[in-house]
């Protein structure tokens, strides 16, 4: 564990201030942390989405490392191409160093439209780190549901109504999907636990082959939370076991942040406007609580403390 305290994090910045992301945006924090840990010898591949439109508004760029955005669904394939290019060019003596190649893509670009290209890259084992910043909906286009939107959440295309609780399905298990490709390292992370995340990024970059990280990334307008509360809500996701922090090393699941005393999911739900319509519906809350209980059991999180 190279990062024990925040002071251990590199001082260098490769993700500049002045980007156009919202105050309190999780993705900006992730981009900054990822580039800090990865360092200068890094190439970023970014899928279409909030981060792309907010950090590359010509003639400005927030990126201090090489960056490319190609399209929405193909960032894993683009990353494979860059890795292949550097492999060949190093072998032929055209360049001397092989850089880190890191994908940053949202949940739409990963769980939905980018799933095929991601599966291809993971199956081939191309040496790239794929990071999904999951804000649980298509936030860039104005909060539409994705395959990673949690059960019950309001979005503009999963509106609660007489016949609907909001989002009717549960999140795709992206880590499960990634691990099923036989990759050597996969991990969850979130912005409230920066050191846990930094150590995982470091570990992923030092693991040969394809690696995958799934970041829960609060979105203040999409989750209907105050801009000051994104870290707090991200922490509640972990403490309620809705977002357990773990890594999968060679197929073995290891919990990295232990929660001996869990909070009930209602604490997480009532902190966000996107769940406002169901916090007073005990049967809906119970469904979400049951989902969290399962995760708690799987990852060894403790009982709910009153």
């Amino acid at each position: 564990m190279p990062y024990k305290t925040l002071k251990d994090l590199p001082l260098e910045e490769y993700f500049g201030p002045g980007h156009r992301l919202c105050q309190g945006c999780g993705a900006g924090i992730i981009a900054r942390l990822v580039t800090k840990v990865a360092g200068a010898n890094t190439i970023i591949v970014n899928a279409t989405g909030c981060v792309e439109v907010s950090t590359t508004f010509y003639p400005d760029t927030a990126w201090g490392v090489p960056y490319i955005h190609v399209a929405f669904e193909n960032s894993a394939a683009a990353a494979s191409g860059i890795r292949a290019a550097y492999n060949a060019m190093v072998r032929k003596g055209i360049v001397d160093k092989n850089p880190n190649v890191i994908v940053l893509a949202g949940d739409g670009g990963t769980a939905d439209i980018g799933m095929q290209a991601l599966s291809g890259a993971l199956e081939r084992g191309d040496h790239i780190l794929y990071i999904c910043y999951d804000n649980e909906a298509y936030m860039n286009t104005g909060i539409q549901r994705s395959g990673a939107t949690p059960y019950g959440a309001w979005t503009t295309t999963s509106p609660p109504g007489k016949l609907s609780p909001g989002q009717k399905t549960t999140k795709k298990d992206l880590i499960g999907i990634a691990v099923s490709h036989g990759i050597k390292y996969a991990a969850t992370a979130t912005v409230a636990y920066l050191l846990d995340a930094a150590n995982k990024i470091e570990k992923a970059l030092n693991t040969p082959g394809a690696t995958f990280m799934h970041f829960l990334s609060p979105c203040t307008p999409g989750w209907r939370i105050d801009t000051a509360n994104s870290i707090k809500v991200s922490r509640l996701a972990v403490q309620t076991a809705l977002w357990p922090l773990y890594e999968v090393v060679d197929g073995e699941y290891i919990t990295t942040v232990k929660v001996p005393k869990r909070l009930p999911v209602i604490e997480y739900l009532k902190a966000q406007g996107r769940f406002r319509h169901l916090v007073n519906k005990p049967e809906e809350v119970a469904k979400i609580q049951a989902y969290a209980d399962k995760l708690a059991e799987k990852f060894g999180y403790g009982p709910i403390s009153p």
Binding site: A77, I82, Q116
Partner: peptide, 17 residues
């Protein structure tokens, strides 16, 4: 795994030089 990825990957490889 697809032609879409075929062109995407050579595009990015070309961008890498």
């Amino acid at each position: 795994e697809s032609e879409h990825s075929a062109l995407s990957s050579v595009l990015a490889a070309s961008a890498a030089g």
